Structures are given as C-alpha cells and as structure tokens.
Computed example of a mutant assay.
Amino acid sequence: MKYLYLLLNVCSISIPLLYSFNKKMRFIRHWKAVLTSLTIVATVFLIWDGVFTKYGVWGFNPNYHLPYLFLGMPIEEWLFFFCIPYASVFIHYSLAYFKPKLVLSKKITQVITLGLILLLLPVVFLNFHKAYTFVNYSFSLIILVFGYYIGIQHLRRFYIAFLIILIPFFVVNGILTGTGLEEPVVWYNNKENLGIRLGTIPIEDIGYAFSMLFTNVMLIEYFKKK
C-alpha cells in the first residue's frame, strides 16, 4: 500500500489540527511559535535522519511510501517531523488548558529527571559503538539536563502528557515498524541499537520521541514569550 505512510501522517495531524481552531482553546493563535519550533527541531532531526539513512542504520520500505525521495528519504519522512510533533504537542497543551492543575510537584519532577539521567549515562557509555543507541540517548541526556536546569516547570506537566502521547505513539510507530504488516514501513539495523523491542518498536524510539517533543515544547515556550 503505497499510501500507508502518508495516510499515517495525515490521520495523526487531522484531528489535532481541526481542534486547534476550537473557540475556547484557540491553540492556532500560537501558530508562529509552533511552526518556528517545528521547523528548527525538524531540521536537526532530518539531518540526523539523513545520515542514518545513508549509512543503513535504518531505511524505508518502498512498498509503503510514494516514490518521491529527497536526500534519500521519502517525502512522508519529511512530513513525519511536522505532523507527529504537532499532534503530540497539541496533546500537551490541551492537557495544560483543560487540566491546568494536573502537574507533578517540582521535587518529584527533579527526582524523575535525575533518575533518567543516571539510567541513561551507563547506556550511552557502554554503547558508543551502536549509532542509534549512542546518538539517541546522548541527545536525550542533553535535553534532560537542559530540562532539569531551565525547563523543570515544563517537565512537571510534560511527563504526564508524554504518558498520554505514548498511546497514539505505540499505534503509529507500531504500524511503521511492522505491527500487522508483512514488512515494516521503516526497518532498523539491529547492529546499531540495543535489539530490545516493545512489540515491534525499538526501545530507543521512546527516547527519540521524548527528546523531539520536549525540545519542541521548550522552544514553543521560548518563542511564545517573543
């Protein structure tokens, strides 16, 4: 099914985009901050994505995407870094709007963040030879450190929002990595990751999603103030 990857992108963003015009929440009023953030983060991740694609860390099954490639990646992969983050940060800001008091305490947030940092440090140092694991978790560590020192207020809500985001994440990413399909839409070279899968999803993808989304949240908050 050539349109599968495109369909996943469109379905992921359609409802959040529609509800962005809700008269009460009016998330669309932040479009400049959101679009600027998405573009910056997408640029960083697409460079990373392109290098990993070139060297076979992962790749794309032509049976599930359109035959239009740019820098070795299908057009759907480029759309992914706008559609999925938009839908995800919309969940975060919807939670902030409808449940403003639903946040973790600052102390608990600090403990969770320090715990994640201490968990990832040995993983990074013991797996420098595995490209996806090393680069992904190194970036996650940087984002967690930034979050601890300058973004703890945002992490207080984001940790809760991320647990909700993981629900559609497992659906979409599960399909992309082969759940219910004869072949995956996106394949991974297990020599470059830990080889641990949650269903069909490499465990590194959770760190990948966290880093990408929380970076967007921090940048959106920065640009909103501008």
Rank of each mutant, 00 (worst) to 15 (best):
M1Q: 01
K2C: 04
K2Q: 13
Y3V: 09
L4S: 12
L6D: 04
N9S: 08
S12I: 11
I13N: 00
S14K: 09
S14L: 15
I15P: 02
P16K: 04
L17G: 13
L18A: 10
L18I: 12
Y19E: 08
K23M: 05
K24L: 05
F27N: 14
F27A: 13
I28M: 11
I28V: 13
I28L: 08
K32D: 07
V34S: 11
L38I: 10
A42C: 02
L46T: 01
I47F: 14
I47G: 12
W48N: 06
W48P: 03
G50N: 04
V51D: 03
K54E: 09
K54D: 07
F60R: 00
N61D: 03
N63G: 01
N63H: 05
N63K: 06
H65M: 07
H65I: 10
L66C: 00
L66Q: 05
Y68G: 01
L69D: 06
L71M: 13
G72I: 05
M73Y: 00
P74H: 12
F82E: 00
I84P: 03
I84T: 03
P85A: 01
A87H: 02
S88H: 06
S88F: 07
V89H: 06
F90G: 08
F90W: 13
I91S: 04
H92R: 14
Y93F: 13
L95Y: 13
A96I: 10
Y97Q: 10
Y97N: 10
F98A: 10
F98W: 15
K99F: 15
P100I: 12
V103I: 15
S105M: 02
S105C: 07
K106T: 15
I108E: 04
Q110R: 15
Q110N: 12
V111R: 12
I112L: 15
I112P: 15
I117K: 10
L118W: 07
L118I: 15
L120M: 12
L121Q: 09
L121T: 14
P122E: 09
L126K: 15
N127F: 13
F128H: 14
F128P: 09
H129Q: 15
Y132N: 01
Y132R: 06
T133K: 06
T133D: 07
V135D: 08
V135S: 15
N136Q: 12
Y137N: 09
S140E: 05
I142T: 01
L144I: 07
G151A: 08
G151L: 04
Q153V: 06
L155A: 05
R156K: 14
R156H: 07
A161I: 07
A161T: 02
F162T: 07
F169Q: 09
F170I: 13
V171D: 03
N173A: 03
N173R: 05
G174V: 05
G174H: 06
G174I: 01
L176R: 09
T177I: 05
T177A: 01
T177H: 11
G178C: 01
L181D: 00
P184H: 06
P184R: 04
W187P: 05
N189L: 09
N190P: 10
K191M: 08
K191H: 08
L194S: 14
I196D: 06
T200G: 00
I201T: 00
I201Q: 05
I201Y: 01
P202W: 08
I203V: 13
E204S: 07
I206M: 07
A209F: 08
A209V: 11
F210T: 11
V217R: 04
K224S: 09
K226P: 14
K226F: 11
K226V: 10
